[in-house]
């Protein structure tokens, strides 16, 4: 009864407050010392290596398809030679980071949410806490840092594969050499294209890890809550990715393209 009386916005505020608390305890534990290197490395492997295939295939197809889609329009404008440049700029600035982050949200955030959620359900997190060990440091700090580190790496790899996919597509129709294509791609890119793109993927990765951990760590103690944790981790992380992306665009344009 009492629960129904609480209006929705208060619950929402409460959830935001909870995330704030979780965020600050994450930071406290980040600088506490006794960093769990081996767990961090293991997580990097789990998160990075196991998502590589998925990221690779998707990026390849995205690059390929984008060229096929762009070609007619640019052809109409007589700007066919702009194809590599258009692909490189759009892929590296926007499409690559966002698509790959969304894929990682689906694969990694849900994985972390489910893993920590089931550790919660089976009292493993409680056991760690009650033994005097620090589950935040062991489980959360390592995972959040690992995603913040691996998502940018995956994005860079994905960018390269995407551009390669574009090359293959272009090669079907126009006879362009690999070296010419890549020179065109790279020469069209400035440092100011790469840097903000990489920086924002760090935030994407952070959001993915953080949301996954938060949802899993704070899930309820029923078996169904594991699924819920995984599910809401994906939804919330995806939402965050778009919010961060929108902010990043604003900040970048203020800083670099005034």
């Amino acid at each position: 009864m009492a629960e129904q009386a609480i209006p929705g916005y208060k619950k929402w505020l409460e959830a935001v407050g909870d995330q704030g608390v979780f965020f600050s305890s994450f930071f406290r534990n980040l600088f506490r010392g006794g960093f769990e290197w081996s767990e961090f490395v293991r997580q990097c492997y789990e998160i990075g290596y196991r998502s590589m295939m998925l990221v690779g295939i998707t990026s390849f197809i995205m690059g390929l398809v984008l060229i096929l889609q762009l070609r007619p329009s640019l052809l109409e404008l007589g700007a066919e030679s702009m194809l590599p440049r258009t692909l490189a700029v759009s892929f590296i600035r926007e499409i690559g980071p966002v698509i790959i982050a969304i894929i990682c949200a689906g694969k990694v955030a849900s994985g972390i949410g489910a893993e920590l959620g089931s550790m919660k359900v089976t009292e493993q997190i409680d056991a760690m806490e009650v033994s005097g060990a620090n589950p935040l440091q062991y489980l959360v700090v390592t995972r959040v840092l690992a995603t913040a580190f691996m998502v940018p790496l995956l994005t860079l790899i994905g960018d390269a594969i995407g551009l390669f996919g574009g090359f293959l597509a272009l090669n079907f129709t126009d006879d362009i050499s690999f070296s010419l294509y890549f020179t065109k791609c790279i020469s069209s890119l400035e440092f100011m294209d790469l840097l903000p793109a990489v920086v924002k993927t760090i935030f994407f990765g952070f959001a993915i890890g953080f949301v996954g951990c938060y949802k899993g760590y704070n899930s309820n103690k029923g078996t169904e809550s594991v699924g819920l944790a995984a599910n809401s981790a994906v939804v919330t992380a995806s939402l965050w990715i778009f919010v961060i992306d929108a902010l990043a665009v604003q900040i970048t344009s203020i800083l670099f393209y005034r």
Binding site: E115, M119, T122, E123, Q124, D126, A127, M128, E129, V130, S131, G132, A133
Partner: peptide
């Protein structure tokens, strides 16, 4: 908490670790 041992109803082993790693953890 270091002075108190708590045995959970389920045992609460960390299932990403072997038994040995579980023992080494604390």
């Amino acid at each position: 908490r270091i002075k108190i041992g708590f045995l959970f109803q389920s045992g609460a082993l960390y299932d990403s670790m072997t038994v040995r790693e579980n023992m080494e953890f604390p």
